[in-house]
Design a protein around this nucleic acid. Sequence first.
DNA 1: TTCTAATCTGGACACGTGTCCAGTTCAACC
DNA 2: GGTTGAACTGGACACGTGTCCAGATTAGAA
Lengths: 180, 180
Amino acid sequence: MSSSTTIRQTETVERLFAAGLAELREVGHEALTIRSVAVRAGVSSATAYTYLASKNHLFAELFWRHLAEAPAVAAMGSRVERVQAAVRSLTTRIAEEPELAAAMSPALLGSDDDVARLRLRIGAEFAARFDAALGEGCEDAVHEALLLAFFGALLQAGMRLMTFDEMVDRLAPVVAVIVA
Amino acid sequence: MSSSTTIRQTETVERLFAAGLAELREVGHEALTIRSVAVRAGVSSATAYTYLASKNHLFAELFWRHLAEAPAVAAMGSRVERVQAAVRSLTTRIAEEPELAAAMSPALLGSDDDVARLRLRIGAEFAARFDAALGEGCEDAVHEALLLAFFGALLQAGMRLMTFDEMVDRLAPVVAVIVA
DNA sequence: TTCTAATCTGGACACGTGTCCAGTTCAACC
DNA sequence: GGTTGAACTGGACACGTGTCCAGATTAGAA
């Protein structure tokens, strides 16, 4: 695989992800099909399937890319404040793309290898951010509790038991209980 | 709908759920199809679809029925101990049916009305059990934190980031942090 | 026994999924 | 400018989903 062909492939992949996001915003994750994404990207469906293992893989990748852009938070204030800031940064970022947020929960439960890889990365990203916010000398159980509560909130939002916008407010007192 | 016809319908439904569980245990939730469940129940697929809105609905219903059988815990010991006992009761019950546990997470994220109704019931069941274990005079945030952490653990197990068997041990210290 | 109304059947339908492959186009290198 | 090999195409495939409906079966009431 020479470098130039890699460039070509990369362009195709990027076109597919861009088309995927546009399609997702426009028709939602239920109505989106790989083939409709392929059409929008100006590519045959066979090509789409060589880069997108599945709908779940597409959503997981889009979510990961979106999430990675959430701003890091300043290392100032009390421990509780830092953690709350980290939570706020992540949740508001997620809430920016409601359709992506809705698509993400079921997608990340998929059993594709590509999805498995991405959810590890995503989990690690959450853990790293909470780690940074908690700072040195913090019980493992606190870190774990925080992570689980955050995942739980994601799940509840995915189940529509709360909205992604509500997450920030619901999590603030929870963070206080856990970190204090 | 006279009472006798209701009996007939009930029998059909029960046969479907029983066949669903047997099929689930045998081939797993990926390979299971509504039609294979129908065959096993000795019923046409058209009939199956009149009672099972979807695969997700089947899994959600089976999970709910299974969960409701988790033993209630005695109202003795410290608050932390009671909550840990409640968590243990639920998680061990869930772990008894690994395939059902694996099927449940994606299923509960479905958008059918039937699924939505069931997940409310299931969420309420969790909440009620934690409520009973926590007893009087407990901050809302603690209750909320507990519930979110439990949901989070379910999600992580669904994602195969941990096994359902590990849940009990991982949650014990988390409960201690939250309730203490 | 006969009628009636609900239940169940079988099989077709439109649709999406993900796979496959023979054949075409493209970009780079000689 | 031709050759080469990767990337792309188009279109068929087998399969599962969930819907539909005309007709056969069934159970119970008259």
